[in-house]
């Protein structure tokens, strides 16, 4: 156990065992999957038309926003070139994985996904959903992987406030809808409603993805730090599909050019 906790010699054993239990997980996942399949194949024409219509409308709106984004990105790149900074905004390789509907230890916030090292996933890889950062992979097997959510009590993610760039760390609390920001001085500029985005420090999470909204700031003059709580953006208990991203230049996370990139984000 100590070996598993402190070092990583047992990873291969764990991934071998994960192949053994894979059939069990598939079996448990089956009813939910079948239900989804039935619902899709038995949907009426009218329902499909409605869904199609709403999706098309949504795509139109998103496309319009994307046009703006492209212009902004170009402008951003131009300005950064002027400043001689190497911060990169742009596309990263992505992969969509589905959650296996299996329960894990109820006191750990972990999920199981249906992709593994055969899809070139790696340990520590960030996990997103359509709204924000969900967590990172902690064990990768050949067919399945285990991810730790950002709300697990053992998880911390470096973030910054989108409004003013104040950097801090968001800790998991063990509740699915709460993150805690420790060590914020009482005079720090932080308000309810501030958006926290990943800062990219530490080189694990890509910079600039939304993480959480600040929902409570309690400044007590008697204490050294204020109590700040935030609610994760990602739908940690509802998502069925997750996105896996590959950070660029993972080999040199500490190089100033990329490592410091997060600090210069707006």
């Amino acid at each position: 156990m100590t070996v598993d906790h402190r070092q990583h010699h047992l990873d291969s054993m764990r991934s071998a065992l994960s192949v053994v239990v894979y059939p069990l997980q598939l079996l448990v996942d089956l009813p939910g999957n079948t239900y989804d399949w039935f619902r899709e194949s038995l949907a009426t024409r009218r329902q499909l038309q409605e869904e199609n219509f709403s999706l098309r409308k949504q795509q139109l709106v998103l496309n319009t926003q994307l046009q703006k984004l492209e212009a902004l990105e170009a402008e951003n790149r131009h300005l950064r070139a002027l400043l001689d900074s190497s911060f990169q905004v742009g596309e990263r390789p992505m992969l969509i994985a589905a959650l296996l509907s299996v329960d894990m230890d109820p006191y750990r916030h972990q999920i199981e996904i249906n992709k593994g090292s055969l899809d070139k996933l790696f340990e520590g890889q960030p996990l997103l959903d359509s709204r924000g950062v969900m967590g990172q992979l902690i064990h990768v097997g050949p067919f399945t992987s285990t991810a730790m959510l950002i709300t697990d009590p053992a998880h911390a993610i470096p973030v910054q406030i989108n409004r003013n760039g104040l950097r801090t760390i968001a800790l998991g609390t063990g509740k699915l809808d709460r993150l805690e920001l420790p060590n914020i001085p009482n005079n720090a500029d932080i308000q309810v409603g501030d958006l926290l985005v990943s800062s990219g420090l530490g080189g694990r999470f890509p910079p600039g993805y939304p993480v959480a909204d600040v929902i409570e700031v309690e400044q007590d003059p008697g204490r050294a730090f204020s109590r700040v709580l935030a609610r994760p953006r990602a739908q940690l208990d509802r998502s069925r599909e997750v996105l896996l991203v590959w950070p660029e230049q993972i080999e040199h996370p500490m190089e100033p050019a990329t490592g410091a990139g997060g600090e210069e984000a707006p």
Binding site: V21, V102, D105
Partner: peptide, 17 residues
Amino acid sequence: GLLLDVLTGTLLGQHAL
């Protein structure tokens, strides 16, 4: 116990012990 450890994502050997 080992299989249970892998299934529930706990430390390898916890349930086994």
